[in-house]
């Protein structure tokens, strides 16, 4: 009978991806409520050091699936190896962090078990022996409670921030087990990861940021936000769609695929607050949101909000700030 929870540990060349600790915390929490042991699984080729690091957490065991073909991540390689590990270990539940790497191979893995993932969960609640997973839908506007039919293995991925890495409990040296895995044909060839040439603008040091989203409507309207940024002595930034449309260069994009910032003041104009944007700015000191939709998720993290038309609010805000600063 299927038993236990298996948590997938993500790393690059042996360097742990910190969201794996959040996945450990998720698996431990579910494991204690379901009274199920938690095992961790690592895929790669040279995993000794990392396996020992993971074994310091409160886990039943750490399983390493080693194969030279796993030295570099590929979706084909990881799917083969994880499929093999899941079939051998036969868990009830497989927990993974919802990272770009997991998104790349885990749906393929689940498909080998004739199902899909319960993806990008923000919470999970155990009632007796079943789990209700909560995931955000409609770009963060609504929450959905999702239940699976319980047929093992259930695959679930958790959004970054759903659990805190420091919630992952330490334990007493979990046993490390090495399992052989077969890896079939790998059809894609990766080149080395790289960063684009040095970004012209480094917003990570900015004290004040005025960020615009799709609510700004047109490139011409950017001037409005620019004036506010000037009055505040801050920098202009944007959500992804603004950079996608090339209204602002990509080095002004905030979020999971842009820059991560934590200014003293972050003013979000016409930004809905999708998770991929929030991860880039949620640690800002004071967060201000101006948005005409009272249900926009950005209000969930804002200190001050104006529900209304940014085209009415921003010119006045700019003038008032100039007055306060005595430059009007």
């Amino acid at each position: 009978m299927s038993q236990g929870i298996l948590v997938f540990i993500e790393h690059r060349n042996g360097a742990l991806n910190k969201t794996s600790l959040e996945a450990i915390a998720a698996a431990q929490s579910l494991g204690s409520q379901l009274q199920q042991p938690v095992s961790a699984v690592l895929l790669g080729s040279d995993l000794n050091t990392l396996a020992q690091e993971i074994a310091t957490y409160d886990l039943g065991r750490v399983v390493t699936a080693s194969n030279a073909k796993l030295a570099e991540y590929t979706p084909d390689g990881y799917t083969f190896a994880m499929e093999h590990a899941v079939r051998q270990l036969d868990p009830q539940l497989v927990v993974m962090p919802h990272t770009y790497l997991v998104r790349d191979f885990a749906p393929k893995l689940a498909a080998r078990f004739e199902k899909s993932l319960i993806s990008d969960c923000i919470r999970a609640q155990v009632n007796e022996s079943s789990i209700t997973f909560t995931r955000r839908i409609f770009l963060g506007k609504l929450d959905a409670d999702v239940v699976s039919d319980g047929q093992p293995p259930v695959f679930a991925t958790f959004q970054s921030g759903a659990y805190r890495p420091d919630q992952a409990a330490k334990g007493s040296a979990a046993a490390i087990e090495i399992i052989p895995v077969d890896v079939g044909e790998i059809r894609m060839t990766p080149e080395a990861p790289f960063q684009e040439v040095k970004q012209a603008v480094d917003l990570s040091k900015a004290d004040i940021i005025v960020a615009v989203g799709r609510g700004i409507k047109s490139k011409d309207n950017l001037a409005l936000a620019e004036k506010l940024a000037d009055a505040l002595g801050g920098d202009l930034a944007a959500s992804r769609p603004i950079c996608d449309a090339e209204w602002l260069p990509i080095d002004r994009q905030i979020g999971s695929s842009g820059q991560t910032v934590a200014p003293k003041l972050y003013v979000a104009l016409g930004i809905s607050g999708a998770i991929q944007h929030l991860v880039g700015m949620k640690n800002s000191g004071t967060i201000v949101a101006i948005n005409k939709d009272p249900e926009a998720p950005i209000f969930d993290i804002a200190d001050y909000g104006i529900v209304g038309d940014l085209f009415e609010a921003v010119p006045i805000l700019t003038e008032e700030i100039k007055k306060i600063k005595g430059v009007a």
Binding site: K115, D143, A144
Partner: peptide
């Protein structure tokens, strides 16, 4: 195999 129970 996965079903939305409720949304809110």
């Amino acid at each position: 195999h996965q079903r939305i129970e409720k949304i809110y």
